[in-house]
């Protein structure tokens, strides 16, 4: 089982942790944000609903911007701008 953390050609980043359960999505989200620069965008895809609430609060506390949130076929997609 593998997580994906990639830099896209448009300069954004992709973190795909589908299949992972708590606490992996929130840990990988935190670590991915630490790796990117302020103002850069991370698209996070996951399918563990329990992680969503924690990630939202983590972003809010740390001053990052949750630009977009959507659900598609059982997957949750967060578009995050590092603050």
């Amino acid at each position: 089982m593998a997580m994906k953390f990639e830099k896209n050609t448009d300069g954004t980043y992709l973190l795909d942790v589908c299949g992972y359960v708590c606490p992996h999505p929130q840990i990988y989200c935190k670590k991915s944000i630490e790796k990117i620069q302020e103002g850069e965008v991370l698209n996070m895809v996951f399918d563990n609903p329990s992680s969503a609430e924690t990630i939202k609060q983590m972003l809010d506390q740390a001053g990052h911007d949750l630009m977009e949130e959507k659900k598609e076929a059982g997957k949750i997609i967060f578009k995050i701008k590092k603050g």
């Binding site: 708590c22 606490p23 929130q26 840990i27 935190k30 924690t54 983590m58």
Partner: peptide, 20 residues
Amino acid sequence: GRFCFASASRDLFAAGVPRM
């Protein structure tokens, strides 16, 4: 409520989130 006792201490230590 995503109510999990593991989350209470784990998210505090792992992500600094006290929600749970």
